[in-house]
């Protein structure tokens, strides 16, 4: 059974259509990327899943129940805009959120201390949040999301504002949560993280789903590009849609940039070249990366390097 199921979800703020007929599901142990530019509807969708705001229409099911059932004991959430009570110590903050999620104080404290130790903050457990650096406070906030060992971990732009070391730490935590069977959803518009972590991803543009599937499936939405050094006969091989000569190497040899016909595999073309006797000095496949897919589906203006 999916941990989270969203069906035909729509959210309007007055005239603005923030989320448009969105459907997806996330399975246990899956890392699910929620990709889209600013204002794509990522945060709005996560807020609806958490029952912070209500949808205009559509259905959400969290662990088989409506979001208003508030299964907070099984959910961890890290918001994009982060902040904690300045006068509270790190461990008190973690215990407070643990108790709001239905944990016993003692259990919350012991797991909180374990998390702080993992985040290299063991000696700062009693330090007030106001006396911590921004990076430290962000790690404490991550601990508040993880303290209840959630089965559904939702992270809204979790990497923003983190230095590379802490980004690595966060990636480890995401993989650790997934490893113990939790479904992890994180929104981002930084493609590298999604490419490294996601089992599946969903691309949103202005509230509307543009793609849902695995990384390979996402790459497959753009035709592969081939560079080859071969004679002119390569342009006639079945499956080659277009062959563009980019350099004359002499003696009938050219460097080509080849675009394949739809639904044609690179391996098929290579096989046909061999079987039809088209000589090859070089044959390289250049697959589309997620950045290319994002630019293609969402638009160059929405992408952040």
């Amino acid at each position: 059974m999916p941990v989270l199921e969203v069906e035909r979800l729509t959210k309007r703020f007055g005239e603005l259509l923030a989320v448009d007929d969105l459907s997806f599901a996330v399975e246990p142990g899956e890392i699910f990327g929620f990709l889209g530019g600013n204002g794509a509807g990522k945060t709005t969708t996560l807020r609806m899943v958490l029952d912070i705001i209500r949808p205009s229409s559509g259905r959400i099911s969290v662990f088989g129940s409506a979001p208003d059932q508030r299964n907070t004991a099984a959910i961890g959430f890290l918001p994009e805009e982060r902040g904690l009570y300045g006068h509270m110590s790190a461990i008190d903050t973690i215990v407070y959120f643990a108790r709001l999620k239905g944990m016993a104080a003692a259990e919350g404290r012991s797991h909180g201390l374990e998390l702080l130790a993992r985040f290299d903050l063991a000696d700062r457990a009693g330090t007030k949040i106001a006396d911590m650096s921004k990076g430290m406070a962000q790690k404490v906030q991550l601990a508040t999301a993880l303290v209840n060992r959630p089965q559904l971990l939702m992270l809204d732009e979790p990497f923003s504002g983190l230095d590379p070391v802490n980004q690595g730490l966060l990636e480890d935590e995401i993989l650790r949560a997934s490893g113990r069977g939790a479904a992890v959803i994180f929104s981002t518009h930084v493609m590298q993280h999604a490419e490294r972590l996601c089992d599946r991803l969903l691309l949103l543009r202005k509230g509307h789903k543009r793609f849902e599937g695995t990384i390979d499936e996402a790459r497959a939405t753009l035709p592969a590009r081939i560079t080859a050094v071969a004679p002119q006969s390569i342009a006639r091989v079945a499956g080659v849609h277009h062959a563009e000569p980019v350099g004359d190497l002499g003696a009938g040899w050219h460097e080509w940039t080849i675009t394949l016909a739809p639904d044609t595999e690179v391996g098929e073309v290579l096989e046909r070249c061999t079987s039809t006797g088209v000589p090859l000095r070089r044959f390289e496949e250049h697959r589309a990366n997620l950045h290319d897919v994002f630019v293609s589906l969402v638009g160059a203006a929405e992408v952040q390097p």
Partner: peptide, 12 residues
């Protein structure tokens, strides 16, 4: 301090 969203994820 922008901690309302964290709170509202846990309580009504």
């Amino acid at each position: 301090n922008k901690l309302l969203e964290s709170l509202l994820a846990c309580i009504r």
